[in-house]
Nucleic acid binder design. Structure first.
Lengths: 145, 145
DNA sequence: GTAGTACATTCGTCGCTACGAATATGTCGT
DNA sequence: ACGACATATTCGTAGCGACGAATGTACTAC
């Protein structure tokens, strides 16, 4: 399932356009940046993007079918990572054409997210679901609405 | 969109996504490549892309409003060129991620087109409208299927 | 086994967009 | 002036895509 398994009958400009169309949605750009150079679970993206699980999952499906991301199950969680780190580079260089790259660095450096349940976010005491077993904090992290 | 005086209310990822969405259409990629590093008129693009004039014009309007192309009238013709040649570079580098760049070089090297009426294409004897002094065209409206 | 969690998938709907048709605008030639 | 031409613009429509709701699937804990 690499990047070239689909539609070799497609003209190359259509292939390139499909790729650009994938990136033509802010939420998918955000997903790719939130994944960044590490592995994140869906609930992590859900917390970062503030979108419903189904929507996230649908975007991930498209990115997966396009070969931009790969997924791997680990217990109850499914971790996503970029199939190749060069997608980040492409977005950085594209953003550089507009003179703005700081926000990308910020998005890439996003770390543990309140509301996420994955072990990586649970390393901090802000994740309520993990801290059920270890109630160091009781819901002190209601930051918005 | 010139990313300047007015309209930074948009988050940067939306700006980038808008740019990618513009390139997410094969016909617009084709337009940009057909323009390439020179100036072409609309009838040229019409002949190259095989699309109706209105459709071409609408795509050009979007590319113009996004600041990717600029237009300049010269007599009855309006010539379009890329606002900056780096858009070509971006597409080449993006295509390189897929390992295919030959078709871009081919599209860029496209020269006079049969069916185009602009002076550049009329340098060759294949343009019928220029040869209207030589009335070979009677009812040659080839909306042939 | 059942219940609960994390995620995927299907379906329906709404909004956006690409295209065709028609019309308007600007330019040249007469 | 007028008509022909090149292009822009408006409008209507059809198709696609994004999202929500509901449901299905895989895994864990009990």
């Amino acid at each position: 399932m690499q990047t070239n398994t689909s539609a070799p009958a497609e003209p190359p400009e259509a292939t390139l356009a499909s790729f650009f169309r994938l990136l033509g949605q802010p939420v998918r750009i955000h997903i790719l940046l939130a994944i960044g150079r590490r592995e994140v679970c869906v609930c992590h993206l859900e917390a970062v993007l503030g979108q419903r699980q189904a929507a996230i999952s649908q975007h991930l499906m498209q990115l997966r079918e396009a070969g931009l991301v790969v997924s791997e199950r680990s217990g109850r969680h499914i971790y996503y990572r970029l199939s190749q780190p060069k997608w980040i580079d492409l977005m950085i260089s594209a953003a550089a054409f507009f003179g703005e790259t700081d926000w990308i660095a910020q998005a890439l450096s996003l770390d543990p997210v309140p509301g996420c349940c994955c072990p990586e976010c649970s390393a901090t005491p802000i994740c309520p679901r993990i801290s059920e077993t270890d109630p160091v904090r009781e819901g002190t992290e209601n930051k918005s609405t």
